[in-house]
């Protein structure tokens, strides 16, 4: 079985802070990490490898620095890593990103493609289903568990919904989008870390992949950012440092004033 996992390097958005005076983002010193849902997806692929035997490839689109998360993936146990990097990919929205990744996937052999549900920098959850559509394969999103059916031709997939879970049968080849909360990713192994730096990351540009170039990057992006801004600071209300009795008195009287109670 061949599995390809699409991963993304993202800024750790939980570490981003707003400058309280200027209201702008403080990006300095914010670490870059493997997107958590993608890491969950990678772990799921590695568990399939442990259980059934599989070849696991990771692929990422990004700047040359994204090499780092591919090394991390090597240290976790993947067999092959591909970095899609080219100026022609720059400025891509979700559709253009999905076209680039689908273009790379067309040149690879796979039974399952796994992506994270969403990335913490954009939170769109769009790229996975868009890739599946370009490749004309079925998708299951919000996956928290899966196993291969006895036939070896289909997956039994557990999907999380607002009401609970659904058990679905998906024929392979297919694409799954996975939740970080589904599985706890393994740590990099010590020999794995050493090996990770001896292994070769394959670097692919736009001419390596099977896609119409007009569908890539800024040119291939139907959506454009008109403006980006911080929300502006709300004027904070009063803050009281008083004992519990007095605090309760203040809360109750304010709620009455505002006719909330």
């Amino acid at each position: 079985m061949n599995i390809v996992v699409c991963i993304k390097q993202v800024p750790d958005t939980t570490e981003i802070k707003i400058n309280p005076v200027t209201g702008t983002l403080i990006r300095d010193g914010v670490p870059s990490i493997m997107n958590p849902d993608d890491k969950g997806g990678l772990e799921m692929a590695l568990r399939l490898k442990d259980k059934y035997g599989a070849n696991v490839t990771v692929i990422t689109m990004g700047p040359p620095q994204a090499d780092l998360i591919l090394r991390e993936a090597f240290a976790m146990g993947v067999d092959r890593a591909i970095l899609l990097t080219d100026r022609k990919f720059a400025g891509a929205d979700t559709l253009a990103t999905s076209n680039a990744l689908a273009g790379a996937l067309r040149t690879l052999d796979w039974d399952i493609v796994i992506t994270g549900r969403q990335a913490i920098d954009g939170d769109t959850a769009q790229v996975g289903p868009q890739i599946a559509e370009h490749l004309d394969v079925p998708q299951v999103s919000y996956v928290c568990d899966l196993e291969v059916e006895k036939s070896g031709k289909a997956l039994r997939v557990t999907k999380e919904t607002e009401e609970g879970v659904q058990i679905l049968e998906a024929q392979m080849p297919c694409l799954l989008t996975v939740l970080a909360s589904a599985v706890k990713p393994r740590y990099m192994s010590a020999p794995g870390i050493v090996e990770a730096y001896n292994k070769q990351v394959e670097i692919w540009g736009a001419d390596h992949i099977d896609v119409d170039e007009t569908k890539l990057g800024l040119k291939g992006s139907p959506t454009k950012v008109l403006k980006a801004f911080t929300k502006g600071l709300k004027v904070p209300g009063e803050v009281f440092e008083v004992d519990a009795e007095e605090a309760v008195g203040i809360i109750v009287s304010r709620l009455k004033e505002k006719f909330i109670i």
Binding site: D121, D123, P222, K224, L226, F229
Partner: peptide, 17 residues
């Protein structure tokens, strides 16, 4: 929409499609 975990807001348009 919010981006960067709610740190930033972006206004987006889809003018040609």
């Amino acid at each position: 929409r919010p981006a960067f975990g709610g740190n930033l807001m972006a206004t987006i348009m889809c003018t040609e499609h």
